[in-house]
Design a protein around this nucleic acid. Structure first.
Lengths: 150, 150
DNA sequence: GTAAATGCAAACCGTTTGCTGTACA
DNA sequence: TGTACAGCAAACGGTTTGCATTTAC
């Protein structure tokens, strides 16, 4: 909940209001371990505020994205998945095409390479969405050429 | 149109039929320079076959994806964009958040890093979707910290 | 008190599906 | 000629919007 104060100040800075629902949705997102979609956020929020509506969830998720407190990812399901941002830990996602498992990755090297590409082309990169898909250790067809190291 | 024969054989191998519409949609995709969405593909196809329908476009794009002849990308617009695959040239996309321009990237280093991550975790990667967003050279706010090299 | 946000339902938009007629093999 | 496909329109699912009401400030 440490981001609650920064949320409050960012909101007030813009002349917006810190409502019960907005706080709730941020809390739901921060306490979610995985990558909930809007429906899951709605369901979890509804447990604590049965009167909350879908529109509020979507509007608040959009607001959190704008404020840099949440990220939306396309994990290959055709709809958005959300995640509270921890700026100290940028990471990427792998989705198994068979079992649907999502694995998170950290790769400082990819961040570095991206930064260097950005500099070369004069681009200011604000977001990196790197999404792998394929087959995880357990769903991989036997004899596939990607060797597993012990 | 060099992929037409491989398209024909791939199709026949599966007991499917090589229709006028399927050939047309592949040709439209191959002759498109950018990253058309389904609607743009439909519009271009319709110029040459006014009776073609949306369903055929979607079904054929899905087929081309399955056969590895087309890729679908999320370029941050909330709907799919398509591209004919040139297997010799895997690349990534940057979208400018202000002017919408899409820049293509090649980075063997990122491919290598990805491959190495894949090996370490025992994952078989079949697809890499790397999408940057931010501001291009012309839309970048002045004084932004990402230095441009001459 | 007043501007902004909520909740509801309807609209929206990209995509998929069921069905009947058409055309490839 | 038989089977897969096309075209149409209706359904679908996720998301957005308009509007009356509520709420934070």
């Amino acid at each position: 909940m440490r981001s609650n104060e920064s949320f409050a100040s960012a909101i007030r800075l813009r002349g917006m209001k810190l409502t019960r629902q907005r706080q709730l949705i941020l809390e739901v997102l921060e306490s979610s371990r995985g990558h909930p979609d809007a429906e899951m956020v709605y369901a979890k929020a509804k447990e604590r505020d049965p009167r909350i509506g879908f529109a509020t969830v979507y509007r608040t998720l959009a607001l959190l994205k704008q404020l840099g407190l949440a990220e939306e990812h396309n994990l290959g399901e055709g709809h958005g998945h959300f995640e509270a941002v921890d700026k100290t830990k940028p990471h990427f996602h792998f989705t198994c095409l068979k079992c649907g498992k999502v694995v998170e990755f950290v790769s400082p090297q990819i961040l570095r390479t991206t930064q260097s590409l950005c500099e070369k082309k004069g681009l200011l990169v604000t977001d990196i969405h790197l999404h792998f898909s394929g087959y995880c250790r357990h769903c991989r067809p036997a004899g596939s050429e990607c060797a597993e190291k012990p």
